[in-house]
Design a binder for these strands. Sequence first.
RNA 1: GGCCCCAUCGUCUAGCGGUCAGGAUCCCAGGUUUUCAUCCUGGUUACAGGGGUUCGAGUCCCCUUGGGGUCACCA
Length: 449
Amino acid sequence: MIVTRFAPSPTGYLHIGGLRTALFSYLWAKKSGGKFLLRIEDTDRSRHNEDAVSGILKAFEWVGIKSDEEVVYQSERQDIYNKYINILLQNGKAYKCYMSKDELEQLREEQTTRKERPRYDGRYRNFTGTPPIGVEPVIRIKTPETGSIIVRDLVKGDVEFSIEDNLDDFVIARADGMPTYNFVVAIDDAVMGVTDVIRGDDHLSNTPKQIVVYEALGFKIPKFYHVPMIHNAEGKKLSKRDGATDVLQYRELGYLPDALLNFLLRLGWSYRDKELFSRNEMLELFEPSNINKSASIFSIEKLNWINGEKIKNLSQDQLANLSGIESSPVIDLVRDRCSTIIDIKIESEKIINQPEIYDEQSLKKHYRDDNKKILNIFYEKIKNNNISLAEAFAQVLETEKVGMAKLAQPLRIALVGVAQSPSVVDVINILGIKEVIYRIEKFFERIEK
RNA sequence: GGCCCCAUCGUCUAGCGGUCAGGAUCCCAGGUUUUCAUCCUGGUUACAGGGGUUCGAGUCCCCUUGGGGUCACCA
């Protein structure tokens, strides 16, 4: 059984890039009946931020991804970490290091001036004397001294890290006893039974350290998939400056979870020429072997298109619900020209509500003397005669010998305030003759002032 | 700077030695629609550069260049 996990650190909201790795992890586990787990990485107590945690969970709820087990909090697992630290201490695979922070810093400086790579020199690795007084030791793990560690990554291929160039006896527990990141990640993944680790490739260079921990404890090494980053238009890491990176912002902007997920799925992954995926198709077709090796740039254009496509699949009631307006045929009239839920709302309300103001540009272009005259003839016709709107429309065009635009455009402005809306015939039919008369009267009234 | 990763249209990508280098998006043009952000049709645009290997290279190897990531008692 495949077990995957997503392990955010609760420093803020759920990031769009995080959602993508979570999605990959989720799909990969669920497609084969496995488990997807959620773990909050808060070993650093100052990072334990309740608001951030609930924000992250809320985001997952919105997109419909949920953990198959209770959410794991690292801050509650101190006992587990201690247990493994003690095991390592007892079997001599880890040791107490009494080097002070100052000493360490000094060592690093010296190494740097010698143009060496700053690394711990292993001075307490085989220490048997009496420890210095007044120094709370950290716990360091014994890393192999020579050779290299190969990360068998299923996205990038085998990546070799020479110990000489990359590793030292790194700290697994701080002086205050709190374990460090690379240690707890390995412990948790092993203890939680995670078989496949899918994460951002910014973690690739951490992986050898985690492998050191796995091997020291005799844990089975999981499969690793390091997925490339998502960049902004400048090719840099996505940051707040780049607009919406918080998953929940996309809800405010009128995007559907299905669209966001579909978009993210196709960023760094592909299935031949297929662009649109239903939830079931995602599950069926996702394979990590199709994950790309190179970073991709986040660009909103395709998301807009996908969102528009997904909107086409929703019912009138669903759209009404999402956009917070009353369900009515207006929605169906308007939906094809909308790419977000916000558009649905705006376009619908344009028709539902009587216009308060009339768009300058539209007036300038479509409300000249002859238009005025034509609109007025139309108005008189429907006001005094017992005639259908469609008939009145046709008659005016016929008797005045004008193209439809001459009547339709000013009429549209009178009805919805601008020269852009669905077919004016559809609009008048939906509004009904009384409302049409009323809106034209209002229009004349206001415009002549 | 050391180490590591990456490199096909503007963007997302297909391609796994022999293709007119395909699709999507964006953009542009034409058509339909009285308007239009819809719809239909068509179009422009790419293998970073240089060496190899091979009968043949976007595909394999090397170098250069460019970009990114990472180097903590942060995660």
